[in-house]
Amino acid sequence: MNTSENTKAFFTETGAISSFAARFFKQVYKPRFELNEFIRQCYVIGYQSLPLIGLTGFIMGLVLTIQLRPSLTEYGVEAQLPSMISVAVFRELGPVITALIFAGKIGSSIGAELGSMRVTEQIDAMEVSGTNPFKYLVVTRVLATTLMLPILVLLADAIALYGSYLGVNIRGNTSFSLFYTQVTGILEFGDVLPAFIKTFFFGFAIGVIGCYKGYHSRKGTEGVGRSANMAVVISSVTVFVIDLVAVQVTDILNLN
């Protein structure tokens, strides 16, 4: 494909995903609500992702602390290490890294699951049996990713700060009380709320893209693999794009 075809394909794909998202908003308010499936998805997407997200967050806090210490020591502001880690984790690293891990695990999972259902014609069978497959499969998953990612991000932040506390005490001696005071003392609403709000968009994007890729999977099992792969790639890029937009919006609204 040449450049123009690629560009056209990009806009076509973007339009299709937007149309898919619009269909989600149409379906989400209409009964019948698949509450049990939604709770099951929350359990699978949220709770069962916690070990991976928690481990990632812990390592993120620990490594960030160890990496930052030499530079801060060089400038004589080693005491500011907890404050810097706190701001970095809450504002940017926690949401983005958690969203990327989440996209890798959940985006691929949803893409592969729905893709295999599509190629095995299970979705078609649901339509024939009178069940709304979009509502049962897509709406519940997108809602679950939208609501679970913020919770996961908050818990990842907390675990990352614990990792940071351990990292601070590897070469220093800071009490938990002082660490807590420094971490919370530097924070403002402008550090937490915009970052928290953008995680809903991250979760929504990951859910919509994963579902779209799986729901429109083609060409048999090969297509399932491609759907899973593309779901991860596109949702990861989308996370960064949303992050960029979110930073601009927060800056314009003077919330930084």
Binding site: I39, C42, Y43, G46, Y47, L50, P150, I151, L152, L154, L155, D157, A158, T184, L187, E188, F189, V192, F196
Partner: peptide
């Protein structure tokens, strides 16, 4: 487990906002 997971996340958020 899901309830504990949810409460832990929301509780952390509430605590954070309260401290700030």
């Amino acid at each position: 487990k899901l309830g504990v997971f949810m409460i832990a996340g929301v509780g952390f958020l509430v605590m954070l906002l309260y401290v700030i």
